[in-house]
Design a binder for these strands. Structure first.
Lengths: 190, 190
DNA sequence: TGCCTACCTGACACCTGGTGCCAAGTAGGC
DNA sequence: GCCTACTTGGCACCAGGTGTCAGGTAGGCA
């Protein structure tokens, strides 16, 4: 428990994130180089890569942590709840821990939608979501090929989340994300 | 209509693809450099990038073309068919035009599953599938928010295809892809 | 046949993200 | 006040990708 070091590390990481996101919003993600970020944050290029594995991780940082949060929330739901209801509730429970303000959230979301490398890396992290959630969902499925069905439900739910997020960005943050999500789920469950 | 040029270009492109895929299977995708491919194919590194925008495109080349094929097949389905049935039939109709043999198909699929950059690029091309298919599916939806619902159905179907493909690879090519796909769809439409 | 034009090609330089390595520094424990 | 463990920065290096330019080659036309 090197607490002192850990705190310092976390603080610096936070500072780098701030600096980088400012630059990203100002001049775009791809147009911002790692050297610029490092220089603005007062560290070396090499150190940057010690705090973030890739440039994309600065934006997508805590996505894996959120998956774990959703997983914990899902486990806490009643065991007899059907997977769709349980997943929806779990995601709502663990939402908005990292919520700052609408404007910057919108800018970040738009960037994630419009930048190929960010989209790609996001999908990569989504795989972690599937790995974490699928076994938990499988416990709530009683018939058929449980593994396949669980994978399908998780993939379906994540797709609906993406759709809701897209519509939200498109609407400049005015759309009701929950309503869009429910509409998308309805389309699946017919 | 520069037919002569076009033919030569297509032939060379095919040859590069052959060469590259052989190298990929031999030593893995990431371990194979573009310089190696270019040298093996007897062209310059610069020319390689004139035929393929990225290294990944050598493997994923005709994915966009397949999307167009599915779209055409979808349009040909009876207008009163529900989207799920129509999509399933359309994908089956336009399948296996680029089918070589099980062994190399399996090797390629496994590579696509295990290589992050390939997965990422594949998802990128999947977006094109969505863009092409969603408006066609929308015509088959009669109630609710048509755009959102169509997007959800397309995303769901593509997710099920991925699941089926994954299970197929996992089973060394012995699994019945159509059956797995149907099982996955059942989980969604439950 | 011979030229002209359009396209293709290879070579070079350059940028960017990312990694391995090593020497120097700095904070904490005894 | 020293020792140790972790961190830092600098350097060299690799690979993917792009802009540019000079030179070549195939096709069309007189």
């Amino acid at each position: 428990m090197a607490t002192a070091w850990d705190r310092q590390r976390a603080a610096l990481r936070e500072e780098i994130t701030e600096t980088a996101r400012t630059l990203f919003v100002e001049q775009g993600f791809e147009a911002t180089t790692v050297d610029q970020i490092a220089q603005s944050a007062g560290i070396s290029r090499r150190s940057f890569f010690r705090y973030f594995g890739t440039k994309e991780d600065v934006v997508l940082g805590d996505l894996n942590a959120r998956a774990d949060a959703v997983a914990r929330a899902l486990e806490a739901r009643p065991a007899d709840e059907d997977p769709w209801t349980a997943l929806r509730a779990a995601m709502l429970d663990s939402r908005s821990e990292t919520f700052t303000d609408v404007r910057s959230d919108l800018a970040l979301s738009r960037m994630m939608r419009d930048t190929p490398s960010l989209r790609a890396r996001k999908v990569e992290k989504r795989q972690y979501w599937s790995e974490v959630l699928t076994p938990l969902v499988a416990e709530r499925i009683t018939e058929g090929d449980v593994t396949v069905r669980a994978a399908a439900v998780v993939a379906g739910v994540l797709a609906c989340v993406d759709i809701a997020s897209d519509v939200w960005v498109e609407s400049e943050g005015t759309a009701d994300m929950e309503a869009v999500y429910d509409e998308a789920v309805t389309a699946l469950r017919g």
